[in-house]
C-alpha cells in the first residue's frame, strides 16, 4: 500500500465528475428507499414507540423544558442509528462498493451522497415524530418551528459522523454492534448542544430564545468539524 492520494492535473475534472456521481448515488438511494421503504417507516415507528416508552418510564403525560428536549433528542438519535446501520448494506451486499470503485468516482462523492440521503431520512423522520411528540406531551406548539431548526443542525452533524462510522462498520464483521458502540460517544456533544438549545424553546411558559445562540454555535462547529474530517478521510474508507 504505497502512496496516499494522487494529485494529478485531472483532479479538477474529476471533481466536476464527482458532482454527477454524487447526484446519481443520492437519486439511486432515494429511489430504492421510496420503493422498498426499509428505513424511514421503521425509524418513525421506533420514534413513536419510544415516546410511549418514555411516557411510562418517566410516568409523565406532560413534558416541558429540559425533560422534553431530552426525550425528543434521545429518540431522534436512537432512531437515526437504525438508518445509519442500513446506509451501506446495499453497497456491501450487492456490490455497490465495487461498482463505484470501478468507475472514476471520488470516494467523497459516495460519502457525500450517503450523508445527504441520511439527512433526507432524518428530516422526514422529524416531520413525522415532531407533531406526534407535541400531540403527546406539549401544551403549546409555539416552540416547534425553532426546535425543527435546531434538529436540522443536529441532523447535519449526525449525518457527518454517522456516514463515517457506517462506512467503517459496513466493511466489518460486527456491523450492527459497531455503529451504536462507536457512534453514541461521538454524538454526546450533539446531544448536549441540541438539548440545551431546545430546552428554553420547549419551556412550559412558552418559547424563550435567550442563550440558545451559543448552543447553535456549538452545533455549527461540530457540523463543520466533522464535514471537514469526512472530506479528508473519506477516500481512505472506499479503498479495498
Amino acid at each position: 500500500m504505497s502512496g496516499g492520494r494522487d494529485r494529478g492535473p485531472d483532479r479538477g475534472r474529476r471533481r466536476g465528475h464527482s458532482l454527477h456521481a454524487f447526484r446519481a448515488i443520492l437519486a439511486k438511494d432515494l429511489r430504492v428507499e421510496l420503493r422498498t421503504l426499509q428505513s424511514v417507516p421503521a425509524m418513525a415507528l421506533f420514534g413513536v414507540t419510544t415516546f410511549v416508552l418514555f411516557r411510562y418510564g418517566l410516568d409523565r403525560t406532560k413534558l416541558s423544558g429540559g425533560l422534553a428536549a431530552g426525550v425528543l433528542l434521545a429518540t431522534v438519535l436512537f432512531a437515526a442509528i437504525l438508518a445509519i446501520n442500513r446506509l451501506f448494506v446495499a453497497e456491501r451486499d450487492e456490490g455497490g462498493f465495487d461498482a463505484i470503485r470501478l468507475a472514476p468516482v471520488d470516494g467523497t462523492a459516495l460519502g457525500g451522497a450517503k450523508a445527504a440521503a441520511l439527512i433526507v431520512y432524518l428530516v422526514v423522520l422529524e416531520a413525522i415524530t415532531l407533531p406526534v411528540f407535541a400531540l403527546f406531551f406539549l401544551d403549546s406548539w409555539a416552540g416547534l418551528a425553532p426546535v425543527a431548526g435546531v434538529l436540522a443542525l443536529a441532523d447535519v452533524g449526525l449525518a457527518a459522523t454517522g456516514v463515517l462510522v457506517s462506512a467503517i462498520a459496513a466493511n466489518s464483521r460486527a456491523r450492527d454492534l459497531l455503529v451504536p458502540l462507536v457512534l453514541l460517544p461521538l454524538l454526546i456533544p450533539v446531544m448536549i448542544a441540541a438539548a440545551n438549545a431546545a430546552e428554553p424553546l420547549l419551556a412550559a411558559q412558552g418559547p424563550a430564545y435567550g442563550g440558545i445562540g451559543k448552543w447553535v454555535g456549538v452545533l455549527a462547529l461540530y457540523d463543520m468539524t466533522f464535514i471537514a474530517v469526512g472530506f479528508a478521510v473519506y477516500d481512505f474508507l472506499l479503498e479495498d
Partner: peptide, 25 residues
C-alpha cells in the same frame, strides 16, 4: 497501480462472480 488507479478506472470492464447490480432497481 495503485498510484494512478483512478486514471485506469472507467476504462476497465470487470465481470466478476458478483453481478454488481442493485437488486431493488
Amino acid at each position: 497501480l495503485p498510484r494512478e488507479s483512478w486514471r485506469a478506472r472507467g476504462r476497465i470492464g470487470y465481470l466478476g462472480h458478483e453481478p454488481l447490480l442493485y437488486r431493488d432497481l
